[in-house]
């Protein structure tokens, strides 16, 4: 399955179909962490695409690490499973996208790099970089032919800071404390109806 992300193929209007259920409340913006604001799937030319809006807010320790040259890897995990009545759900597809955010002291920019595709883009501000990171417009999820008619499918999405990619000493800190723990809850919805679970 193609795991390439293309931002230009789809018009901005596609965002209109994004579910914004989690946007209802006032922004809990100042609190550090990762929050999936919205996520949805749509069928286009025989392929199911994922769109999502994610808030990345760094805490003091991760920010300090980033500014001291330590790259942060964010791991986006998407899982698709077939719902079954009496049996455990069947995993159909699993997709993982890794993004690396790093500080470039020479150009004084924040570089976001998709580790799967190698695409990268520099941003002059951290805000712009995180914002760029948080907008997913069309991530190909699964070929429609692999999705059976009449079956219920659940999509799960989660974003998290990958502690495995931290340098050793920080991994021990991450193991013993919450300073380097940034992760969202699982965001679940129905593949066809888009109804959030």
């Amino acid at each position: 399955m193609q795991q390439h992300q293309n931002r230009h193929r789809l018009p901005r209007v596609a965002l209109a179909v994004l579910l914004a259920l989690s946007l209802a409340g006032p922004a809990r913006g100042q609190e550090a962490g990762i929050e999936i604001r919205s996520a949805s799937t749509r069928l286009e030319e025989g392929v199911w695409y994922l769109a999502a809006r994610i808030d990345y807010r760094l805490n003091r320790d991760t920010l300090e690490a980033l500014q001291n040259g330590i790259p942060l890897t964010f791991d986006l995990r998407v899982e698709l499973s077939r719902q079954r009545s009496w049996l455990p759900d069947e995993d159909v597809a699993e997709l993982r996208q890794d993004f690396e955010l790093s500080w470039q002291p020479l150009s004084r920019s924040y570089l976001v790099r998709n580790k799967n595709s190698g695409d990268q883009r520099a941003h002059t501000t951290l805000f712009a970089a995180l914002n760029y990171l948080g907008v997913i417009t069309a991530l190909p999820l699964i070929d429609a032919a692999l999705v059976e008619e009449g079956e219920e499918y659940e999509v799960r999405l989660r974003a998290a800071l990958d502690q495995q990619e931290l340098p050793g000493p920080l991994r021990m800190l991450a193991f013993w404390g919450d300073d380097f723990t940034l992760e969202s809850d699982w965001f679940r919805w129905n593949l066809r109806t888009g109804e959030q679970r």
């Binding site: 001291n68 040259g69 920080l170």
Partner: peptide, 17 residues
């Protein structure tokens, strides 16, 4: 520069480790 900054930042945790 980056490696130096990283090492400097990791000095504390490294020692702890």
């Amino acid at each position: 520069y980056t490696r130096y900054a990283e090492l400097r930042f990791l000095r504390g945790p490294l020692k702890d480790n």
